[in-house]
Design a protein around this nucleic acid. Structure first.
Lengths: 194, 194, 194, 194
DNA sequence: AATGAATGAGGATTCATTCAT
DNA sequence: GATGAATGAATCCTCATTCAT
């Protein structure tokens, strides 16, 4: 067998390497060569499988978003009731998987990429819309007309804490970020600030 | 006859051009040549005045931060009372000056720059700390022990809304962003969500 | 089951594809991959059968020259008398088969190839020599000492018209080219220009 | 040692180097690096002055065509009478300047370039049209209705002999080529072949 | 017989930066 | 003060070619 079926393996390795490399370098000025090296192959092969640097970035982005989406879905599966579901959605965003330095760095850079790449822009929009709709779905039964605003604030705070975490070079205390958002959820639902 | 006092003029022109160029391109992959062209001079002169690309970026960043700081200071000057001061701080961040597309794009890119440049990192930290301390200063008398958390949430939301605005290519409705934060302030102070 | 006798079929397909590809691209910057794709096989197989790009080009060249030679031979077979034979040789060069855009493009590129490839140079020489000798063979009995010059001019004109046809992107009016050469033949044989 | 007004000097050096390099390599697979090296500068500078490889080629082509045109013009200036003018036009094409190996190689490659580059195509068309019109201008008064055909044949023969000279690696006997065309002129004008 | 996998080599192009004037 | 000139160092991408299966 002529070493068949390498494509998915190679692609996965490249996607992983891309995120790691972006995390290591801190921006999108990563070279295809270095990504490929990190993934254990030649840059030519990376081009062969992805067609170009842009495609590699987009694949990495899709992967990151997919992981996030999967975590949310998994979290929702075990949650009963609106409150539990809202909590689950929030916690999913700050999972240790999602809150690794490389991933945070990648997220930030995807926002930059979205300034130039229509596709990246689109992907980010989808993420935002999904987050908003997830929150709205369970906020509405609880607080009705206030749900819209609450969802916007919760989503905004989640993104803002992510952004800020990119700056804090400390080993991410995701518990902090999580609890801030959960607190906001609490008070949005009518509880006292704490 | 050598023109006297050109330096500050040239530097200002370059700083302005840098922000505009970053806004136009959407990321930090702007060339010194293009910045210089935009500022009406040769790239060699840009190097002469700033020493290098990094310094140009940092100067642009300092400028943006300085503008922001000035707007906050001015807003605080006319504000009486804790509530008014908190509102002023919040509103200052979403001034039309600060909320121009180029400026938003620049902010985002400064976060990226802070991943690699210690100086940029430092500047962003100062901004964050100042925002936090401004909020804290007037929150503490009002809500005491809850002030810390409230400040973190308000600051996080401000940054998050900024980030999100970078994506929305619509002509910035800064009123929306402002009112979201003001609403959060309101409920953090014990009001009912609205 | 290994297919038997595939070799000649594959080789023929590649030769055909090469000429078409050169015609489509317009120069020798064609890739083995594209040629192979056009021929319905992998580039590895193309290498397997020909050993390398150079060999593929040479095979395509030999094929083109062979076709030409065959057409001349066929035309001569039905021609009686010196005049008829000369006409036949001339007409054979402008057959619709030989005068297809791809073929003309290929010819031009073979001249370029002959600048670097000794073998290509050799093949082109053979073609030229054969044309010259064909013309000479029937000119000599008719015009004696003038035959050498007349042959050189006729051959030169044939090649020149070919070259020019490469430029004219119009659907080849081979009749024009043919009649120009036939007219030259006429006057070389002592007729009045017309 | 940067001086002012280097541009025309550099451009001229690059054009010259391009023709020489094409002559040396035998085709258009020349590298900008090698052209630049031959011209005594870095490839970056070559790009700076021309913008890209294509532009370099076109400049070389324009230069070659301009030289040719100048030689024709000069030759015509000293020629009195239709016969003399026709001879002058013909001889000009085979001047030692135009008939250097590099120049012949360049011509051939320009024909190839014209298959892909609209601009190159255009330039070659202009050359052909000018040659045709030059010939026609002096043929018409002499042979009237036959002028069109004669011009086509003369132009075709000139190009064909050029093409053939590209193959003959012998130090160009331009006298031969010239005399062939002059003989054709002679017989087109009603003389006996010789 | 046939091909997917893989790569080394090379080339066009860009750009920050330096320097002499 | 100001700039044209100049380049070295990258970087993306392509492609002929090889090899294991």
């Amino acid at each position: 067998m002529p070493k068949l079926g390498m494509e998915p393996i190679r692609r996965a390795a490249l996607v992983k390497a891309t995120i790691d490399e972006i995390g290591a370098v801190g921006n999108l000025d990563v070279t295809v060569s270095n990504i490929a090296k990190r993934a254990g192959m030649s840059s030519a092969l990376a081009h062969h499988y992805f067609g170009g640097k842009d495609q590699i970035f987009l694949a990495a982005m899709r992967h990151t978003l997919a992981i996030y989406a999967a975590e949310v879905r998994a979290a929702l599966k075990g949650a009963k009731g609106h409150n539990a579901r809202l909590e689950a959605v929030i916690r999913a965003g700050f999972t240790s998987t999602n809150f690794q330095p490389e991933v945070i760095a990648a997220w930030l850079n995807f926002y930059v990429l979205a300034q130039t790449s229509a596709e990246a822009h689109h992907l980010l929009r989808i993420y935002q819309e999904r987050l908003r709709s997830n929150l709205l779905h369970d906020l509405r039964p609880l607080i009705g007309a206030n749900a819209e605003g609450a969802a916007a604030r919760l989503a905004g705070l989640i993104d803002g804490l992510y952004l800020r975490q990119g700056l804090a070079r400390t080993q991410a205390k995701h518990s902090d970020a999580t609890s801030q958002v959960l607190t906001l959820l609490h008070i949005e639902l009518g509880g006292r600030p704490q």
